[in-house]
Design a protein around this nucleic acid. Sequence first.
DNA 1: ACGGCTTATACG
DNA 2: TCGTATAAG
Length: 692
Amino acid sequence: MPVARPETSDARVIAHVDMDCFYVQVEQRKQPELRGLPTAVVQYNEWQGGALIAVSYEARSCGVKRSMRGEEAKAACPEIQLVQVPVARGKADLNTYRSAGSEVVSILAQSGKCERASIDEVYLDLTDAAESMLADAPPESLESIDEEALKSHILGMSREDGDDFKESVRDWICRKDADRRDKLLGCGIIIVAELRKQVLKETEFSCSAGIAHNKMLAKLASGMNKPAQQTVVPYSAVQELLSSLPIKKMKQLGGKLGTSLQTDLGIDTVGDLLQFSETKLQEHYGINTGTWLWNIARGISGEEVQGRLLPKSHGSGKTFPGPRALRSLSNVQHWLNQLSEELYERLSSDLEQNKRIASTLTLHASAFISKDSDSHKKFPSKSCPLRYGVTKIQEDAFNLFQAALREYMGPFGTKPQGNKKETWRITGLSVSASKIVDIPSGTSSIMRYFQGQSTIPSSSTSGCPQEHVAVTPSVSESCSEQKSVETRASIPEEDITITYTSPDLDNSYRDSDIVLEKSLFMLSSNCCTLEEPTVQFPCQDASCQSNEAKEFPTQSGTQTKTIGRKINNSKEKNRGMPSIVDIFKNYNASPQARQETQEDSTVSLTSNRGNLSSSTSHNSEVNQEVEDRRDTNWGYKVGEIDQSVFDELPYEIQREFRSFLRPNKRPNAGKSKSGDGSASSSIAHYFQPLKR
DNA sequence: ACGGCTTATACG
DNA sequence: TCGTATAAG
């Protein structure tokens, strides 16, 4: 549900940039002969020509619509060119579009705070840039105004044809006696026109944009004149724009809330909404949504541009409609393996390119129960700490699935071939990774090394992180994981790992030291083909132990131990052991927050990872001789940390941590700013608060 | 039984 | 915190 935010500054300059039929443009850039032709991007060509997910404007004028099937599109527009979405691992692969989107973001991020709103949309806060421009080189001082800027649509301005309107636009932009807000928007027009030209030049993609005083209005405007045009909403035009606007056109009101407004309150346009008092709206929709509604009716929206260039989560999913629904555990496992592979590949790139690690793995599925009964019950989602490594993710995802399945089935058994006719069917699966945190900059030597050669020029004024674009390829050193005793035989032993070798800091243009070792990438696909499930996988979740102990015997020796005081518990589900990423987060937090956390939850880090994942518990003897400084800075007692928490980290990071915890093998601790090639030399940087 | 597939956000 | 619901493109 939407929520109201106080308006921070009434004269912000906000732009929303929206790529025109983006996937089509990506394909047309790849195949220039398609340019100018009616084109659509389609996925899964087998059933009725596949479903359209992007349609060029030429095709739209033939009456082709998104949400047509390929065959309908052919009927409507016989000469339409249908391009298929790439497929990998048996599912649609959107990576080419994602990286094309990143190209755009890295250009748009140069002029101000930038928020990646989706794969093909960004918001920009251009307030600072516009203010500087107004101070240093206001439009009226310019000898000529950009042609692209002159093509802008300015709401509220009459737009007679001819070249007259460009004169009107020029006058509007340069008007000396204009409101300050209008002047700022005038600067915004010029800046955005420039940015759009730059995007076109550097990526060959066209886009449209809206320029206004807040995100809501900018978004509204960007869609008003497409493709390849920009639209401005001066303050004075807001009321007229909104008064007749159908309520469902507003962002957030396209769904049930909008419908409720219409049917329950008789509101059809944003103008109608003005009649309702704030308290009235709050009575119907709650305090937050009520206030939000009251505000947007007046064009007020304080939502800030987030300054985030990268996604906050990664997911990989697939649906199995109707007859294709999955009906065996082994088939589910097969698909989870495919999805997990893709997810891991993307996590690896994220680590390489952006130095981020994800800490939570979540499984979603949708299901029904054959032969009716409760057919439409929701399949529960489950999550667990994310451990890096393909097979780890595959294994954890499958365990999560089984735990969820047991919960879903409840009274029915989970046995697919029980006597009952009531058995499950899986119609959708997805795995996702979230809670992604930056590895603090300047921490590990390897990261520092990369920063030396791959950061992009930063012209950013605000504290918004820049995206690291390209990273050089690398030298390999293979590494196979030591598997836990409990690991089942049917799981391949090898993982894709990121391996580490000592970087040579002197040669900044040398090949780097990280490589994705895809040694037995393919192996995992035949590990679980169409066969019967040979083994019922054990599950370590507490909840498993209740019902199906026979079918899913509990692992022995993996009981949860928590010896710390004050765990915020109630549930014996146990969170005794903080994830290693919690420790990162602690260091990303303010010193104060860190302090509190420390007091609140001093816990012992014992073996066992908590929930569903399977890992060995090695109660290694830990080093008690660590320096005070490390103890106090960390917020956790170093001596009590079980080494197995590091299992969830990428290997090169584990290695740094381990050497940090073994001072004897750390000849040159701490201060050595210039890398000496030793992995441990820079680990102390982990423990310095992140500067904003 | 579906348009697929992703991502984000708010709520309890 | 986790899991669910809603929304968007």
